[in-house]
Design a binder for these strands. Structure first.
Length: 892
RNA sequence: GGGCCAUUGGCUCAGUUGGUUAGAGCGCCACGUUGACAUCGUGGAGGUCAGUGGUUCGAAUCCACUAUGGCCCA
């Protein structure tokens, strides 16, 4: 295959992905290879309604890098994909569509027909986001794709529900819950968001019973709820109201007498210091009411309109009732005043409507007991967070966890597995029962199933093991559970991570307690912000579509850029232009590989070992040894940015800028040096592609195949299956690194002179190099040809000591003077400036160093090696400064 | 209201346990194109590390406070 001069991702991505799929590359072997340890990642299942956003792309890239690294290393690697049925979100999407297209509501269709519509929609659109993950290169085992409402996962939900119910950890009761009046369902604490809004604080006058002309003024942001008041509370120490405690006020409109109670929870400084108590519609009042035995009155229907308790306002919407109540109180002279305030309003995450606290019958999970092992898990090291600070967030939530309202008044979801006979006796069953079946306990016919469905998290908390076959003790469960790594966004720590840990400990009883934690590492990835530092969101319209970025820059470039940009979960500001870095890099890799292979055609070298006959061969192999080790360590520790940076430097700076340039002159021949250069190029490219593969899988797979062909090794498999470079045959070579270091210094010095004196690139220059150290002279003398090539020199004279030749410019590098012969008319002003600047800098550095070395405190306290190192540095700096000053004089 | 994070050259970010003459990429300036790559090469300019105080022989790095921006939770 002819490689094009530019890397074109469109040409390869789809084809490469198809090859992986056809080879079953992502599916673990039917049986775990002998000695191979498992490594499992469970994808955080995206909503079936979802489309890929940048957060998914980042998270997907991270998981893919981890699993590819492990797979190449020979682990029994599984990355299991799937989607979440997302109860409210999905139902809302389909309801909206149904209404828009047919003008019907779900009630018009009825439960079964509506669910049919949702399934239809799911089959049609539910795989979109998984398709998008493929575009990113995600190496999930698609043969194990799961959906939270699959029959086996649904059964797992029923089994888990019944287990908790039988243990008394699930109960049913009337409680104040967060009610979404638009979607008409209860929602959990975690589905609420808060918005700071400007509002009003109405001061209402309640007439005190039997004390004409005396009023108790209460302040409220929700005046319509006064219809549900069953008391008024003041602080016990509040002198303004002391004499009123124990008396009553008469509720306007309704004439209900309600008591005045003293309660510590009242803030005397807020409003008037007297608060109306509405246990049916406010969580704080619910508790106050309970303390003082106040009745609970619910004034709202499920749709947010006022019921009969609303008296003259019955039938109005809550908004209308508010206006009317205020207006009529004013007419009655019972409105004291109105203040403007800003306060936090609770909104439903899904419908964005104002949450109404409402008392209703719901199912709850007792969380305290379940939380205990999850709390212990981080203490005993079973679970680690990366970065570690998220541990605190996790623990805070668990330690203050409230009972979990798991019932939802929806149709789309797992229906609660409780059936009733005609007497209302409940019975649970893991298998679905039919109406008319005999009730398991009473034997009477079943007349109905509980109408509610479960919160989506009540299925996704089972994800790490239900996807592997739980509650059955399957081979997959034994083989792949517990998992090793999970990657998620921070706001999911409580919603999902904490619950999965609880569920793991509670349900996976085929394992000893110590082995039940569903994952060992929870990686909390960065939040992707827009170019201005704001969170990307659909509503703000500031999102960047990853698929559009993949189209424009290529999947590899997108992945690489994301890794270069995000350091250890530090938030990242992202703009489309940031992907150019990745594109440039993938192009660079492409061309480096292209160059190597152009020079390898027909060469018979297996690329696995390289005969290093020249110092640059030893040097690049030494750099490769270091880079391999850095990348491997970084990936093992999940430091993706470090690995990406190390690879970038190696590929671009070491390999392309220096080694390839040094090798160019040797490749023409057929001698040992040429052969060694080819062998080294092949070896380095080979390992480089493998090390890059987790980051840029598409491109490296293409190049790997091409390299195999060029080397005549058609038998080797795809890179996706490894091998991961072990570093075999590679060693750090300090001597070679030092020698090339000297060479680099000299080359840079000449180039700098050339640029600063404007002599141009064309002219080959004559140089005199003065190197007092014998080892430096040795390097330079043996590298004259290299210097001639890299710095475009004509002659190179090397001396231990010499005067500056006439008409020459000078550069100083690491104790070495490089004199470049120039014509008389050459302008050395810029060069002098640069030398002067460097001399200044050296002088400042030296000053600081001398001060430090004269400091008794430093000499007494610092480690001896440190003092010694500073002395060496001082000597070097002194020498450099002397050279700079000497040459500066000569130039001016 | 509680918690967390950030503040380093024009922009985006590195800087491991305190000791560097404070780094990188982009952008900018200058020069360069008969072949790996102009999605390129070479050289250069540019920062008293948000502020104040403290700890220390020594602080971009540790502590406290302040300011600004952001995120999560209530």
């Amino acid at each position: 295959m002819e490689l094009s001069p530019r890397y074109d991702p469109h040409e390869h991505e789809a084809a490469v992905y198809t090859r992986w799929l056809e080879a079953g590359s992502f599916t673990p072997a039917a049986e775990a290879p002998k000695g191979a340890e498992p490594f499992t990642i469970m994808i955080p299942p995206p909503n079936v309604t979802g489309v890929l956003h940048m957060g998914h792309a980042l998270n997907g890239a991270i998981q893919d890098i981890v699993i590819r690294h492990k797979r190449m290393q020979g682990f029994d690697a599984l990355w299991l994909p799937g989607t979440d049925h997302a109860g409210i979100a999905t139902q809302a999407v389909v309801e909206k569509k149904l209404y828009a297209e047919e003008g019907k509501t779900r009630q018009d269709l009825g439960r079964d027909a509506f669910l049919g519509k949702v399934w239809e929609w799911k089959e049609l659109h539910g795989n979109q986001i998984l398709e998008q993950y493929r575009r990113l290169g995600a190496s999930c085992d698609w043969s194990r794709t799961k959906f939270t409402m699959d029959e086996d996962l649904s059964r797992a939900v029923r089994v888990s529900f019944l287990a908790l119910w039988e243990k008394g950890l699930i109960y049913r009761g009337a409680r104040l819950v967060h009610w979404d009046c638009v979607l008409q369902t209860a929602i959990s604490d975690d589905e609420i968001e808060y918005e700071t809004r400007k509002g009003k604080l109405w001061h209402l006058k309640y007439p005190v019973k039997d004390q004409p002309e005396r009023f108790l003024v209460v302040a409220t942001t929700r005046p319509e709820t006064m219809l549900g008041d069953t008391g008024v509370a003041v602080h016990p120490d509040d002198e303004r109201y002391g004499d009123l405690v124990g008396k009553s006020v008469v509720l306007p409109f309704l004439g209900r007498e309600i008591p005045i109670v003293a309660d510590e929870s009242v803030d005397p400084a807020f409003g008037t210091g007297a608060v109306k108590v509405t246990p049916g519609h406010d969580p704080a009042d619910y508790e106050r009411g309970a303390r003082h035995n106040l009745p609970i009155i619910s004034i709202l229907e499920k749709d947010g309109t006022l019921n009969a308790e609303g008296g003259p306002f019955a039938g109005m919407s809550r908004e209308k009732a508010r206006t009317e109540v205020v207006k009529q109180l004013e007419e009655l002279g019972l409105l004291d005043k109105v203040e403007s305030i800003t306060h936090n309003v609770s909104l439903s995450d899904r419908s964005k409507s104002v949450i109404e606290p409402l008392v209703s019958e719901q199912w709850f999970v007792r969380m305290k007991e379940l939380a205990e092992p999850a709390i212990a898990a981080v203490g005993n090291g079973s679970l680690t967070f990366r970065p570690e600070r998220w541990k605190k967030v996790y623990l805070d939530w668990l330690e203050n966890v409230q009972d979990w309202c798991i019932s939802r008044q929806l149709w789309w979801g797992h229906r609660i597995p409780i059936w009733y006979d005609e007497d209302g006796v409940p019975a649970g069953s893991a298998d679905e029962l039919q109406l008319g079946d005999a009730h398991p306990k009473t034997g009477k016919p079943i007349v109905r199933q509980d109408a509610d469905v479960l919160d989506t998290w009540a299925s996704s908390w089972l994800w790490p093991f239900a996807t592997l076959g739980w509650p059955d003790d399957t081979a997959d469960l034994r083989r792949f559970y517990p998992t090793q790594f999970i990657s998620t966004a921070r706001e999911i720590i409580y919603l999902w991570i904490a619950r999965m840990v609880m569920a793991g400990y509670e349900f996976v009883d085929s394992l000893p307690e110590a082995e039940r934690c569903p994952f060992t590492t929870c990686y909390v990835h960065a939040t992707v912000l827009d170019g201005k530092g704001k969170r990307m969101s659909k509503s703000a319209g500031n999102g960047i579509d990853p698929i559009a970025m993949i189209e424009e820059f290529g999947a590899d470039a997108v992945r690489y850029s994301l890794m270069m940009l995000t350091r250890e979960g530090q938030d990242v500001k992202l703009a489309p232009a940031r992907f150019e870095e990745g594109r440039r890099f993938t192009n660079k890799i492409w061309n480096a590989a292209r160059f190597v292979m152009m020079n390898l055609e027909g060469e018979r070298t297996d690329g696995s070992s390289a005969a290093a006959v020249e110092v640059e061969d030893r040097w690049i192999l030494s750099r490769l040894a270091r880079t391999r080790s850095e990348v491997h360590t970084a990936l093992t520790d999940y430091h993706f940015n470090d690995a990406a940076t190390a690879l970038y430097r190696f590929v671009w700076n070491d390999f392309c800028d220096w080694y390839v340039e040094l090798a160019k002159g040797r490749l023409a021949g057929e001698d040992d040096s040429a052969k060694a250069a080819r062998g080294t190029l092949a070896r380095v490219l080979n390992d480089m592609l493998a090390l890059l593969h987790p980051f840029t899988p598409f491109q490296t797979e293409v190049l790997w195949a091409e390299l195999g062909r060029v080397l005549g090794d058609g038998e080797r498999g795809m890179l996706v299956r490894g091998p991961w470079p072990t570093g075999e045959g590679l060693a750090v070579d300090e001597a070679a690194e030092a020698r090339i270091g000297v060479l680099q210094e000299v080359v840079r010095a000449v180039r700098s002179v050339r640029a600063l004196t404007m002599v141009g690139e064309r002219k080959a220059l004559d140089t005199v190099i003065v190197a007092p150290r014998a080892e430096d002279r040795d390097v330079i003398e043996s590298s004259v040809e290299r210097l001639r090539g890299l710095a475009h020199l004509e002659t190179v004279e090397v001396h231990a000591a010499a005067e500056r030749p006439p008409s020459s410019a000078a550069a100083v590098a690491g104790g070495i003077e490089v004199f470049v012969r120039l014509g008389e008319d050459v302008d050395t002003a810029k060069l002098s400036e640069t030398l002067a600047r460097r001399a200044d800098k050296a002088r400042k550095g030296l000053e600081a160093l001398s001060k430090k070395l004269a400091n008794q405190g430093f000499l007494a306290n610092a480690e001896p090696e440190m003092v010694e190192a500073e002395k060496v540095k001082q000597e070097e700096l002194e020498q450099e400064l002397a050279l700079l000053e000497r040459n500066l004089e000569g130039l001016s």
